[in-house]
């Protein structure tokens, strides 16, 4: 399995990380090195083995589906790069 620059560009797009065109060959090379290392897993016989979901067998606790928190608009917005009139502000989303 070899990753070319167009696959690298697609992955960068999916991850929402801008990668300049001239950096794509280097990125593809890194991916290939790392994936080459991961390929070793193909040697393992995993027939009939369940994929791990939770490392310690624990039943997740249940809780009442109720409101326990809230009314902290100021705190929630205090770290926003751009907050206006009680909202997070972002660039135009719909044309």
């Amino acid at each position: 399995m070899s990753i070319d620059t167009s696959t690298a560009a697609r992955v960068a797009k999916l991850a929402r990380i801008k990668v300049e065109d001239d950096a794509l060959p280097g990125l593809a090379e890194d991916f290939n090195r790392i994936l080459g290392f991961i390929e070793e897993l193909n040697e393992v016989d995993v027939e009939g083995v369940e994929p791990m979901v939770s490392v310690e067998p624990m039943r997740l606790k249940r809780r009442v589906d109720g409101v326990t928190d809230g009314n902290q608009q100021d705190k929630i917005l205090s770290n926003a790069p751009d907050a206006r009139e009680g909202f997070f502000a972002v660039p135009k989303v719909v044309e």
Partner: peptide
């Protein structure tokens, strides 16, 4: 596949 191997490691 990795999650299955993780089961085997455990």
């Amino acid at each position: 596949r990795a999650r299955k191997v993780r089961t085997l490691i455990k």
